[in-house]
Simulated scan of single mutants.
Amino acid sequence: MIRLLLVDDQALVRGALGALLELEDDLVVVGEAGDGDAAGIRAAELTPDVCLMDIQMPRTDGIEATRAVLAASPATRVLIVTTFARPGYLRGALDAGASGFIVKDAPPERLADAVRRVHAGLRVVDSALAEASLFDGANPLTEREQQVLRLSADGRPIARIAAEVFLSAGTVRNHLSSAIGKTSAANRAEAARLAHDKGWI
């Protein structure tokens, strides 16, 4: 049997995924986690064969949670299962050590097959997303640019952002200006939206 850990902040989604996967003779759900913070703890307790991981969760996202799971249980394979088919998320997840990336609207048989393939040591990536990732290229934003752009998305003043990241207002403006140029946006709000849509922030 392939032992599974399900990590998703929506209980209904975890229940539906678990019910679908347990229809398969060789798959069994041994545990669940409702957020990224709990993922590493549950992985350490259960040492599952495969962890099915959501991307967008409160506090700790699926990319950071993937790192935590692999640190806690190095033999576990992580399969990202998400609604958000964004090239930046794919690259981030693979860089964090995930073995696969599939969207939640995939047919149940494809999901079960992805679990088996990841368990066998293969890499599984949604084909349409892999193509988009290839043509969109890597995330051009530095970590600092991502940070200030993420903080500016809600329109907060530059002085407040500067205080939160311990930088001068001028340095924050420089990072935002660079991010605006790299995203070919007209302003920081548009840059944040474009970067979010691509999964860069």
Rank of each mutant, 00 (worst) to 15 (best):
I2R: 04
L4Q: 00
L5H: 03
L5D: 02
L5G: 05
Q10V: 15
V13K: 02
R14G: 04
L17H: 04
A19I: 05
L21S: 04
L23N: 06
L27N: 00
V30L: 12
A33M: 04
A38E: 15
E45S: 01
L46M: 04
C51Q: 01
M53Y: 00
I55V: 14
Q56Y: 11
P58L: 02
G62C: 00
I63D: 02
A65P: 07
A68S: 11
L70H: 06
L70Q: 08
A71I: 03
A71Q: 14
P74S: 07
I80T: 01
V81I: 10
T82N: 01
F84V: 10
R91P: 06
R91Q: 14
G92W: 03
A96K: 04
V103G: 08
K104E: 07
E109P: 00
A114N: 00
R117Q: 10
G121S: 10
L122W: 12
R123N: 14
L129R: 05
E131I: 14
A132W: 11
G137E: 12
N139C: 09
N139I: 10
R144I: 11
L149E: 08
G155I: 02
A159S: 15
R160M: 10
I161D: 02
I161S: 03
L167A: 09
V172S: 00
R173H: 12
R173F: 01
H175K: 06
L176V: 09
S178F: 01
A179R: 09
G181Q: 08
K182R: 02
K182W: 10
T183D: 08
A185D: 00
R188M: 07
A189C: 07
A192D: 01
L194P: 01
G199E: 08
W200K: 00
W200V: 01
